[in-house]
Each structure stands twice: as structure tokens, then as C-alpha cells.
Amino acid sequence: MDKLDEIRALAIRHAGVNYPGMSRLSIHSSTEPSELSALVCDPMAIILLQGTKRSVIGDKVFEYGSGQTMVVAAEIPVMGQIVEASPEKPFLAINLTLDPAVIMNVVLYLSATPELQMQPGFAFSMANAELIGAWQRLLGMCERPEQIPVMALHLEHELMFRLMLSPHAEMLRQIASIDSRLSHIRRAMAYIREHYAEQLSVEDMAAIAGMSESVFHRRFKAVTALSPLQYQKHIRLQEARRRMISKSADAASVSLAVGYNSTSQFSREYKRLFGEPPRRDAGIVQTMIGSG
């Protein structure tokens, strides 16, 4: 049994279980493909163990499969879809929400590197045997929960060290730094998420990031694959969808609540992102939740 087979067996046994002391680690499993769905992805590291997933970020489409990792460095809107899964070979993935303090502890032991050009806020790579082994040892704590208080953080440091030796190193350094270009962009991203329903200008956002408008726009798009105003639109529409599903609200009131002045424009943009008009989409999701 190779390392991927061993970690798959662990993931199947513990999928969907939350362990105290490892709240940022989650295991996802599915026995069937899924519809394309939208979310804002927090900074995290992901390893896909089995199956295939498609991610749409901005105007870019990525498909990745067994043994591949994805690292997300900022709160990026992602459309995700499981495209290959079955009861015999379920989709399996492990997610770890990143802690900048843990990354910084690892960075302090590594030699400094000059700051590079603005990195994208996401990247994919194939995991080597050492990185897979680090994921396996961290996941193995689920078999020994009594050891989690002592060993889990140590093993997370090992995983971050292995990721720092991968193509994701510079991105991780920027997550850890409180004064990196990425941290300035994330400051503006957080402001947009907090004030998504307001009429924001690129000038205001750039000022929050401490950059000129042209530099801010270029760096923001390098991180998110979206312009600042497109990012705001995604946040608005995802909040609108949440309200439509959880409150059974009408499109007109929701569109106003998330910052649209035109219900027809809201409906057009909602359908473009989610594939169905607001009320129909909400009904489909509510039916899926009810049957699940």
C-alpha cells in the first residue's frame, strides 16, 4: 500500500468528523459529482486524494486530481464542482485553514528571500512523497485523539515546512508577513466584504490598501483573478443567495439589501453566476437540503 492509499483509508474512516484541537482540519468525501457552486474560499491548503475537482476563479478554469495540492492565500470567490466521484471511488480531499502564526514560526527558521513580484492568491502543484507523508501524519492524529493536544501543532509545523519547500513557498511567506503586498490587498478585500452593499470606488479601496489606483487594480487582479468591483459583485451575489435560501425572501427585497438598485440587473447577474434566476435557484437548493 503506497502513501496515497494509506492516507485515503484514513480519510474515509474520518470524513465528516470534527476533532477538538484540530478545528481547522476537515475531510471532505462525496460518492457522486456535484453541481457548480460558489463560495469565498478562506486561506487554506488542500490536498486531493481521490476523484477530480474543477475550480473556476475569475475567468480561469482549473481541474485537479489525486495527489495534487491547492493553496489559497486570500479570501477568493471560487466556483467549485466535483466532476469525478463514485461509491466505489469517492471524492476525497483534506482542507487545512491556514494560520499565519504557524507559517511565520516556520519562516523564521528558513533563510530570507527577496520579495518577488505580486503572487496570485492561489496555486496548484503535485505533492511529492515528503509532503504526502506530512499530510498523512497530521491526519493520523484522528486515530489517536488523545495525542492531539501535544502532537497536532508540531505536525502542522511540519506540513507548513514541506509546503515551504514546494512551489507555494513565496505565497506562504506573503500570508505570514503583516506588511506584505498581499496583506495590503487582503486589507482592502476585508473592507469590501464588510461594506459589500455600499457604493465603493476603486479610489477608496486603493487608499485602504495604501496604493495608487493603477497599482492597486493590477495587484488586486493578480491575487483574485477579479477586478475590485467584480470581487464586490461576487460577494454581493453570494450573500444574496444565502438570504434567498435561508429566509425564503423575494428577489426584490434581497437585491436592495445587498446593494442593487435594479432588480432586473440583479436577476441577470445572479443567473449568470449561479445558472438559474434567484427564486428558482433558491428553490432547487432548498429541495436539495430538504432531501439530504
Rank of each mutant, 00 (worst) to 15 (best):
Y231G: 05
Y231W: 06
A188S: 15
F220Y: 05
P228M: 08
H217Q: 11
A222P: 00
F220T: 00
F220P: 00
I192D: 03
G210H: 04
A207Q: 12
E194A: 15
Y196A: 08
V215H: 09
V202Y: 03
A190Y: 11
S212L: 10
A225N: 14
Y231T: 03
K221I: 03
E203A: 14
V215N: 09
Y231R: 04
V215P: 00
A209H: 03
S214D: 14
Y191P: 01
F216Q: 06
S212V: 00
E198K: 10
E213F: 02
R236G: 02
L229G: 01
M205K: 01
S201L: 10
M205G: 01
M211L: 15
H195Y: 11
A188Q: 06
A207H: 07
K221A: 11
K233D: 09
I192E: 03
A222R: 10
A206E: 01
Q232F: 02
G210E: 03
A206M: 07
S201V: 02
I235W: 02
A197D: 11
F220Q: 01
Y196V: 01
S212F: 03
Q230G: 13
A206D: 02
I235K: 03
H234E: 13
S214V: 10
E203H: 12
Y191W: 14
V223P: 00
Y231Q: 04
Q238C: 09
E194W: 07
R236M: 08
L237T: 04
K233Y: 00
F216S: 02
F220E: 02
E239Q: 14
L229V: 10
E203Y: 12
R236A: 05
A225S: 15
V202F: 04
I192Q: 04
H234P: 00
H217R: 12
Y191T: 09
I235M: 04
L226S: 08
S201W: 05
V215S: 12
S212D: 14
H195A: 05
E198D: 15
E194L: 14
H195N: 15
D204L: 14
F220A: 03
V202M: 08
A206F: 08
H217P: 00
L229C: 05
F220V: 01
Q230V: 03
S214M: 10
M205D: 00
F220R: 01
L229M: 15
K233A: 07
A188I: 06
S227L: 11
